[in-house]
């Protein structure tokens, strides 16, 4: 596991941690059953407060990415491939929504917008 945090980003720190752990699960850098550092150890390693890592782990648990058991620690949960894919697509859609909004704000037509997407795809 490797996490890099930006202090200048407007995204909350716990959100950054969450996203990066998710990414690593998607890319299977973190595999099912793998143990994660304790919230206190991770906090020390990242030089952030305990509550920040605690919140990140709690959210990831709620979303089903991690499981934790008292006394043993926190582990990567088993992920079913098609659900993982679904989640990734959903996240992409969220990002798209924002980009489209922005395109509308600057007055880009649908056609022009799609053209630009094409440009990046090739």
């Amino acid at each position: 596991m490797h996490i890099l945090l930006s202090n200048t980003s407007k995204e909350p720190l716990f959100q950054q941690i969450k996203e990066q752990i998710k990414q690593q699960i998607y890319q299977e850098e973190l595999k099912e059953g793998e143990a994660l550092p304790s919230i206190r150890l991770l906090a020390k390693q990242l030089q952030v407060s305990v509550i920040t890592t605690k919140r990140a782990y709690e959210d990831l648990e709620k979303e089903g990415f991690l499981v934790s058991s008292v006394g043993k620690g926190t582990f990567v949960a088993g992920q079913q491939p098609h659900i993982l894919k679904e989640r990734q697509i959903q996240e992409l859609e969220n990002d798209l929504e924002q980009i489209v909004e922005k395109a509308q704000q600057i007055g880009l037509t649908k056609q022009a917008f799609i053209e630009r997407i094409d440009l990046f795809f090739d």
């Binding site: 202090n7 206190r40 150890l41 906090a43 020390k44 030089q47 952030v48 407060s49 305990v50 509550i51 920040t52």
Partner: peptide
């Protein structure tokens, strides 16, 4: 760094008074 190391112990509590808020950005819960 030292205070963060102390906080590895979950029984520990720190109450920290400051007007230099930068110190708290990374440490305070």
């Amino acid at each position: 760094d030292l205070l963060q190391e102390l906080m590895l112990d979950s029984e520990r509590t720190i109450f920290f008074l400051t007007h230099i808020t930068n110190d708290l950005d990374r440490l305070a819960d």
